[in-house]
Nucleic acid binder design. Sequence first.
DNA 1: CAGGTGCATCACGAAAAGCGATGAATTTCG
DNA 2: CGAAATTCATCGCTTTTCGTGATGCACCTG
Lengths: 300, 300
Amino acid sequence: MLDVVDVELRHLRALAVIAEEGTFGQAAARLGYTQSSVSQQIAALEKAVGGPVFDRPGGPKPVRITPLGEVVLAHGRGLLRKADALTDAVDRFLAGNGRIDIGTFQGVSTLILPAVIRRLLEEHPGCDIRLSDGTARDARIGELDLLFHDGEVEGDVEHVKLFDEQYFLITGAGTFAAGAVRTKLLDDAPMIGWPLTFHQRWLERTLARAGARPRFVFRTTGHETILSMVRAGIGWAVLPWLALHAHDAWSDDQLGIHPLKPAPTRELSLYWPAGRTESPLALRTREIAVEVARDLAAQM
Amino acid sequence: MLDVVDVELRHLRALAVIAEEGTFGQAAARLGYTQSSVSQQIAALEKAVGGPVFDRPGGPKPVRITPLGEVVLAHGRGLLRKADALTDAVDRFLAGNGRIDIGTFQGVSTLILPAVIRRLLEEHPGCDIRLSDGTARDARIGELDLLFHDGEVEGDVEHVKLFDEQYFLITGAGTFAAGAVRTKLLDDAPMIGWPLTFHQRWLERTLARAGARPRFVFRTTGHETILSMVRAGIGWAVLPWLALHAHDAWSDDQLGIHPLKPAPTRELSLYWPAGRTESPLALRTREIAVEVARDLAAQM
DNA sequence: CAGGTGCATCACGAAAAGCGATGAATTTCG
DNA sequence: CGAAATTCATCGCTTTTCGTGATGCACCTG
């Protein structure tokens, strides 16, 4: 007899305003309706809840809420608050302050992602950014909004290429003359690298394909640590341009930096699920990522 | 642009059901609408929130909620829960499990009110009974639903007479021969009574009007205590029939119980505000009070 | 007892909801 | 690769609802 959707938000708002104003007419003025419309709204509400919500004394006396009306009003205010919260949340979402799930892949984007997130938080301080570093073997887009990756991505996705990441040989200063170094020379060379992450595996596979199977004398995480080891003469390293850029390695006269021939190069792309409606925040994040990548690529 | 009442509960319910069922058609079947109607409801919702809430892949694939849809759905479920709570509350209220404010007046109804409340709680274990013992000088109905009182009540009220409360003289056994005692004989007699509550004041005024100004040698609260004092021979007492009934004083051979001539009699009535819609619980409580009073009066 | 106030009701036009049928897009299957 | 199937969107159409303005009715006030 009493259905949930028979009582409408419009009715509850009328109820609340009348309770404040005291008369149907004043409430109608505040709501932008006519008195007769408000009267009918309350009639509809009373039909929906099964009893009168106001006593109408008649004459210039204000109406008075009934016990039933108080029950409805108490809950109705809660409903109206929640409805306001909904519109607020939608407004914030449409303004770009929503939630976004960004995936990366075992350090694929350790250097570009922080820059993207910094800019994102500057623009949208209220947004809810969730990063997940996929440790799974296969790259899946799943529930992600965006995925930084360099390999192929399963599923129905679209992507944009961010830049080509070129790797350089880092040695102690003076080990080689300035200029490119043949990759083959790295074969059996003492080298410092990362533990066998997805990233590192790819690098070693690529080197091997060019005929270089270095001896990894030390594995550690952190580009800065690796650079220190090179400075200490423990071995050489092969690092991407972004790592050198981030640590200002070019101006370090203890280090020698050489392009490799052939140069290990990796294409970093940004993937997102195809055919899904994207959130404004996801769209904006993509723009930012492309901009950041363009800026970085311009300096290479 | 985005108004609170543009999003309707009906739309949110459709959203929630579609999110569960996966297709518009199944949701429509569950909701008792046609597919086309559900489609239009979602279209209206999308117009209200300013963006699509579902991706329609086309073909036999289920629809998929968008990020915006998730925002709306998360809040929408809350709204629907609150709407359910509202209808629950209304149902309970109409079934008689609401709140009721009952007023009494300085012990006027210490004997009938507990019986009424016991029966009320038996019928409606979930109801919220609030008693207020008015210590104010004047009896006002105020925000009360019901008021037990014997005097006049200010304001626009209706009332029903519950019973005539007759007072009896209680003495030690054998003090008087069985039968009525002339009230005048109480003049200057040693007597035990209540402190000067509204109740007691009325009693002493009534006795005085009949020519009896007893010496109150002890004042204490509690009818049982007063009866004990009478048994101990400290003095006499004048108590209403209900007090004697409650403490089974008629079968106490240490006591002598005598009607008074003229008999102090008081009319106890139940008042409620006129012209206000009453809650089902208030109506029922009135019925119960009348029944309880009738049962008691039958035994007098 | 007239005047004023305030809600209810009526009639009407506009808007919206719901329905059935049809169309368009996509997947699936042969 | 084309036919069948599935699913949502759209189009008239009818019914219902909403909002308005005018009017009526009840009640209070002077």
